[in-house]
């Protein structure tokens, strides 16, 4: 442990912490754009710069380890002035149509401009206008809004391993893109959508949320993915009682990472094919029935077979898709109501 001072207060933190982590854990927010926990620290956006006593330059807090006796200012005049300049440079080449941007109200660039009262930029000049790439099935790529933080590049390479993105060109011409500037279908992209979830601005946006609602109207519900046994935690984005998308949740073992199924496989919930009523087959044709009618029918049929044949005439297949509570009741039903141990499920397959 080392002892450091942040904004005049003393803290004791582990020696392998960065200044950013030390501050975060003690409730001090330092703005970041390119930093994402778990990914390589590039220190490229400079938003997280802080002033350290005895050091001439401002230091990127994400990339600077704490040292004993360090004295840090996270919101000094010099720091704020530097952050303002960075923001002014960023918005100098940013599509500022915030009015209709899907990330309006949930955008780091917007939040920080507000926080540091940056209303405009003195750096007038060329702006890049890239056509919006809508080619892939799952999300749009609007690089006129990209701030080159590089998080999509890192998460794709370091977590998925697909290495779809990289920086192209230099300086003002720098652009994030895929190999040969091609559409994602022509790359190794596995549609995991993690790039969309780490994008701090509106450059990468799920198609399913386009024009569906403002971020503040969307309820986010943390739950467990319905597909495989990893049990990823994710947030369902809900608007008007409909799921419109999925975003990362970092509380589980998946650390906010997802695959194509968790990220984009939820639409079946709203499929027109969903069963909405109990069905009873009569003369080979299914007819809609009320619950009362259907349950009475099932109870009657089961009761009849139970009286005639006993428990050994029954078998039940439970579901690896249902909850623990439902599975518990299912085997309890088979054992105590139908008097049989003939209960199993697909674990054996």
């Amino acid at each position: 442990m080392v002892s450091i001072t942040i904004n005049g207060n003393q803290y004791s933190v582990p020696a392998d912490y960065s200044i950013l982590k030390a501050a975060e854990e003690n409730g001090i927010n330092i703005p970041t754009l390119c930093y994402e926990e778990g990914l390589t620290i590039t220190g490229s956006c400079r938003m997280c710069v802080v002033e350290v006593k005895g050091v001439r330059k401002l230091l990127a807090s994400c990339a600077t380890p704490v040292t004993e006796g360090m004295e840090v200012q996270t919101e000094s005049e010099r720091v704020i002035s530097a952050r303002r300049d960075i923001l002014r440079l960023l918005i100098a080449n940013h599509d500022l149509r915030c009015l209709t941007c899907e990330r309006n109200g949930d955008c780091r660039l917007q939040d920080y401009c507000y926080r540091y009262k940056v209303e405009d930029t003195p750096y007038k000049g060329d702006k890049k206008h890239y056509p919006i790439d809508t080619d892939n099935h799952f999300f749009i790529r609007d690089y006129s809004k990209c701030i080159k933080c590089g998080k999509c590049v890192s998460i794709c390479a370091e977590v998925n391993g697909a290495h779809v993105y990289d920086f192209m060109e230099r300086g003002f011409d720098t652009k994030v893109t895929s190999a040969f500037d091609d559409t994602l279908q022509e790359t190794t992209c596995t549609a995991c959508g993690m790039c969309v979830n780490v994008c701090p601005v509106g450059a990468l946006v799920e198609k399913s949320v386009l024009w569906e609602g403002r971020p503040w109207e969307v309820k986010k519900v943390t739950t467990t993915c319905s597909y495989c046994g990893v049990g990823c935690q994710l947030k369902l984005k809900v608007k008007d009682d409909r799921i419109i998308g999925v975003t990362a949740d970092k509380s589980g073992s998946n650390l906010g990472h997802l695959c194509a199924k968790g990220q984009f496989g939820w639409e079946y919930v709203h499929s027109q094919d969903r069963l909405t009523d109990p069905l009873i087959k009569r003369n080979g044709v299914f007819e809609k029935a009320s619950w009362e009618e259907a349950l009475t029918y099932v109870a009657h049929r089961l009761q009849g077979i139970l009286q005639e044949r006993g428990g050994q005439a029954f078998a039940g297949l439970s579901s690896a898709k249902c909850t623990n509570e439902e599975n518990y009741l299912f085997q309890k039903f088979m054992r105590t109501v139908l008097h049989t141990n003939n209960v199993d499920h697909c674990a054996r397959l």
């Binding site: 467990t224 046994g229 439970s318 690896a320 898709k321 499920h345």
Partner: peptide, 21 residues
């Protein structure tokens, strides 16, 4: 590696012919 979201739970809950929960 379990293939389904709750194949572990369905086993734990006794949805097996030889085990209670």
């Amino acid at each position: 590696l379990r293939g389904q979201n709750n194949v572990q739970g369905a086993c734990d809950m006794g949805c097996l012919p030889n085990y209670y929960p």
